[in-house]
């Protein structure tokens, strides 16, 4: 055989000879690799238990960012019952509840539909705040109350108590009922019995012959 072939053979023999570099490597690996497997197993077991390595996190309710507008509802409807157990509904174009703490819902073009002894009645207002705990609507601005057979009352800035079926206004009220137009310091309207009690330099104008406000 050629000289190179002999050289290559010698190197291979030397490499394969027992106790050579290859054998030492294999011997080392025979010990190192199982140890490594043990180590990895240990790490896999121990690391989650150790306190330092907390992988999970806790959402702290106080630190999380809270939205100011708690609830905004389109075409909202709130249901309730009055003192005689009759249903009423308060519907609104848009209703915004500032926060869960305050049960007050600011409403735009709201309508309250309720049952009276002589039939259904409606309270309508462009703006109001409905407190669904006390079931009262604080109306800022104009409000129209209409009851069966054409009874209508229009006034402003009153608080309507849907449970008691009473609307009260103070600090100067004015309005109109089929009987005539009125003005006074304060007013208490019992929607069920259709009485309006005006207190404090009350004024009323009745125009004989005026057609009752058509239904």
């Amino acid at each position: 055989m050629s000289v190179e072939a002999i050289k290559i053979r010698n190197r291979r023999r030397h490499f394969a000879a027992p106790g050579g570099s290859h054998d030492r490597l294999i011997a080392f690996l025979a010990k190192a690799l199982p140890a490594l497997i043990g180590l990895v197993a240990a790490v896999m077991i121990l690391v989650p238990l150790s306190p330092r390595g907390e992988i999970s996190f806790l959402l702290d309710r106080n630190k999380v960012a809270v939205t100011t507008e708690r609830l905004k509802v389109q075409d909202a409807t709130y249901l309730g019952q009055d003192k005689n157990g009759r249903d009423f509904r308060v519907t609104a174009g848009t209703a915004v509840q500032k926060s869960a703490a305050t049960p007050i819902v600011e409403m735009l073009d709201l309508a309250a539909l309720m049952e009276l002894q002589d039939g259904p009645a409606r309270v309508e207002a462009p703006r109001g705040a409905y407190n669904y705990d006390t079931e009262k609507i604080d109306i800022s601005g104009p409000v129209a109350f209409s009851a069966p057979d054409g009874y209508r009352m229009t006034t402003r800035n009153v608080a309507v108590d849907l449970k008691q079926k009473v609307a009260v206004g103070s600090g100067g009220v004015e309005g109109a009922v089929p009987t005539g137009t009125f003005r006074a310091n304060s007013m208490k309207a019992d929607l069920e019995n259709r009485t309006v009690t005006l207190e404090g330099n009350a004024r009323l104008q009745m125009t004989p012959g005026k057609m009752r406000i058509p239904k």
């Binding site: 009987t179 009125f182 259709r194 009485t195 009690t197 404090g200 009350a202 009745m206 004989p208």
Partner: peptide
Amino acid sequence: DTSAPVNYAADRIELQDKQNRVVL
């Protein structure tokens, strides 16, 4: 003219629609 508009002023006015009555 008894069909002219009538204006009322009082400390207290109660309109009672169902009884068709106004108490001043």
